[in-house]
Amino acid sequence: MNGFIKVAVFNYQHEYAILQLLLEQAEIRFFFQNETVLGVMPFYSNAVGGIILKVHPEDLEEAHQIIDDFKTRENLRTV
């Protein structure tokens, strides 16, 4: 997955569950680096740098727009 660009970092999988669905619906090419490791050992999040969302360069602008919209939606805020 060379060439993909770091867009966001999360500590736990539940923090990006809805965002992942939104990215998939928009057919954005992305992946979460360290997702499997931290799914098994969640307390290692700080040690490995968190779960990193990486997006294909051609989808970067659209991904940023989806993330910005996600942040501003009051009904989707996590507790």
Rank of each mutant, 00 (worst) to 15 (best):
I66C: 00
K54A: 07
I5Y: 08
V7A: 03
R29V: 04
R77S: 11
T78Q: 15
V9F: 07
L60A: 00
M1V: 14
K54V: 04
K54I: 06
F4P: 02
L21Y: 08
L22H: 01
M1C: 12
F4S: 07
I5C: 07
L19Y: 02
R77P: 04
H56Y: 09
I52L: 10
I18H: 07
Q25N: 03
N34T: 00
L22K: 02
I51V: 08
F10P: 00
H14K: 13
A47Q: 14
E62T: 09
E24V: 03
V9D: 05
Y16W: 09
L19N: 03
G3W: 07
Q13L: 13
H56N: 10
Q13T: 15
V7Y: 00
E35P: 08
V7P: 02
G50F: 03
V9M: 07
A47W: 10
T78I: 15
A8K: 06
I67Y: 00
G50K: 06
E74I: 14
I5W: 08
L21K: 15
A47H: 13
H56P: 07
E61G: 05
A63N: 03
A8R: 07
D69P: 09
E61P: 03
L60C: 05
E62M: 10
F43Q: 14
I67W: 05
V37D: 11
E74W: 12
I67E: 00
S45H: 13
P42M: 05
N2P: 12
L23A: 02
A63M: 00
P42D: 04
L19H: 02
L22D: 04
Y44A: 15
L23R: 03
E27V: 01
V40G: 01
G3M: 09
Y12C: 05
I5E: 10
K6R: 12
R73D: 03
F70C: 03
Y16G: 00
N2E: 15
M1L: 13
A63Q: 01
Y16E: 00
K71I: 12
V79L: 14
I67D: 00
Y44V: 11
A26Q: 05
R77N: 11
G3C: 03
A63S: 04
N11A: 06
T78V: 14
E58R: 09
D59R: 09
Q65L: 13
I67F: 04
I67N: 02
M1P: 10
N46V: 06
L76S: 01
H56S: 06
P57D: 03
L76A: 04
D68H: 14
G39A: 09
R29Y: 02
G50S: 05
H14V: 07
A63D: 04
L38Q: 06
G50L: 03
L53E: 02
E62K: 15
P57G: 02
N2G: 13
L60D: 01
L53R: 03
A63G: 02
D59I: 02
Q13W: 10
D68M: 11
V7D: 00
G39H: 09
T36C: 15
N2A: 12
Q25V: 04
Y12M: 12
T72R: 14
E74R: 15
Q65S: 15
V7N: 04
L23T: 06
D68F: 11
F70Q: 00
T36A: 15
V48H: 08
E74Y: 12
V79A: 12
I52F: 06
